[in-house]
Structure formats: C-alpha cells, structure tokens
Design a protein around this nucleic acid. Sequence first.
DNA 1: GCGATTTATATCGTTCACGATGCAAAATTA
DNA 2: TAATTTTGCATCGTGAACGATATAAATCGC
Lengths: 149, 149
Amino acid sequence: MDNEQLKLENQFCFRLYSAARLMMGAYHPYLDPLGITYPQYLVLLVLWEQDKQPVCDIGKRLMLDTNTMTPLLQRMEKAGLITRTRGKEDTRQRIVSLTKQGKALYEQAQDIPENMRKAVMMPESDVEELLQTIPTLDKLIEELKKLNK
Amino acid sequence: MDNEQLKLENQFCFRLYSAARLMMGAYHPYLDPLGITYPQYLVLLVLWEQDKQPVCDIGKRLMLDTNTMTPLLQRMEKAGLITRTRGKEDTRQRIVSLTKQGKALYEQAQDIPENMRKAVMMPESDVEELLQTIPTLDKLIEELKKLNK
DNA sequence: GCGATTTATATCGTTCACGATGCAAAATTA
DNA sequence: TAATTTTGCATCGTGAACGATATAAATCGC
C-alpha cells in the first residue's frame, strides 16, 4: 500500500469534504437561534437578494436539482418562512416567496458573516489567504459543473 | 437587502459547500464501478494505509463521529468489504479489518487520483493553484475543528 | 396544428451527517 | 475497592443530497 496519491493526507478532495462539513457545523451557533439549517440559509440568501423566484432559478443559483430543492422548500414552507404558489404565465412553476417571518430573519442574519469570520479567528493574514482562494475555487467549481452534467 | 456580505456571490462558505458536493459527484464514474460511495472510499483509504483499526481511530482520521461511522461501516460490512470484530484488550472496541474483497479494491483504485486530476482538466497552472491552497485549507480545518468541540 | 421533446416540479429509495440518548466497559479518583 | 467519569460504540430521528422515475405543461419541428 505505497501509492502516495492514495494516502488521505495527500488528498485535496478530502480537505474540501472535511472543511465543508466542519464549516456547516460552525454555523450552528448562528443558525440555530433562527431555527434554520445551512442549506435553508442559502435559500434565504437567494430570496433576500430577489424575492418571488421559481424553484428552478433558486436551484440554479445553489446548483441544486429539484429533487433536493422540493423537500427543502417544503420544510421551509412548513416552518412558515416561505410560500409556494403556482406560476401565472407558466403554470408548471412554483413561485417561492418570503413570508413576513422569512423577511424578518434578514435583520437577524445581519451579523452572521462577520461573526463567522470572527469565530474562525484566524490571523488576519490567513483570512486574507482564504479569500484569495476564491477565484481558484470558482474555476474548480466551473470544471466540476461540466463533469456533473 | 443591501448587505454585501449577505450576498451569495460574496460567500466563501458557499463555494466550499458547492465544491465539496460537486467533487463527490465527479467521483461517481470511478467509484460506481467499485460499488462504493465517496465516504466509503475514504474509509478504505484509511484502512489501506493501516488495516485492523478500531472504529474511533478511523473516525478520528476522517473527523467523523461514531453516529456516522457505525452505519457507514455496517453497510460496508454488508457489502463484504470489511469485517468488524470485538477488540481483545478493550472489549468495547470494534476492530475493522479489510476482507479479501476490500483489499482487492486497492488495485482497482490505483488510477483514481490521477483520473480525477485529468477529469477536472484544468490547465496545469490552475491545478498547481489548487494544490497551493492545501495549507490554507488545513489551517481553516484546524480552526473549524476547535469550533466544533 | 400536432406529435415529439424539453422543462418544471414532485416522489421514492438509499446513503450520509449529526444531535440526542443509551449502555457497558475501561480508566480515574476518592 | 467503590464511586465517578470517560470512552467506544450503537440506535433513533431529522434533514440533506441525489439517482431514478413520473407527470403535466410548455416548446419545438414539421
């Protein structure tokens, strides 16, 4: 068992997988009080930017298919954060709208990005390093999106 | 809704989340033929490095708790990849061992890292960029681990 | 206009991920 | 040694993810 590439420590993907998991865990202190999960937070981010979108548009932003979106949105509807109404021009669509409660969460979410940044508490230089990886991650995501077609 | 930090495009964490998901999807062409999932592949990576480990040791390497590990290992046992025997000195432990089939997969996995690298097909310089982010990701993971305690 | 295809959503089944809880064995402390 | 705490594993419930499949509406090609 001497293939260096097959060792856990040498795997970029394992880092990605672990960092993503741990990152979601780190959101708990900020999302639990709002009664939402990380994927639900992402849906809210999209809706806060632009209310009343069909499921597929939200899915495209989050790169999630309807088999993930539908149950997610159903749970959010049940929690009173959104409503799902039939589309007018295209009756296949479900237009997702924020409820008063869903809109109200926006105020409570104001400090989440800043709090997360502080929580990680890396030296300023490391945070800078992290942000510099964004273009690289974006390039990777673009390539991976092609593969996932 | 004008908080720039609350916009999806400005979120590092969303990139992490998306990249990790898409990355797992990209493994499908290589893992499906072996009949394993990405988390199962990770368990095998650990066992290929060192066979016969208790559940907790594997969990520590993968940063996963037993409530995730146990069902995962049970499925792998059912699939004939591993066995789980009681520990000799510490009878609480379950020692996880590779079966002949589990060991045999090692040969079939040889080209996976290289194939994944080729599949992403980023220019060589970008792959280099990606690998350069590893120390940064490791620092982030260390910080996140502290938060997840 | 009409059959074929695509699109938007939903459902089902399986696997993960993880909080909460339980239990027995081991280690620690009194 | 007895009492307490910790450790190792398991189970349950919930929420994602996602492949496969289904259905109806919209669009396309002719």
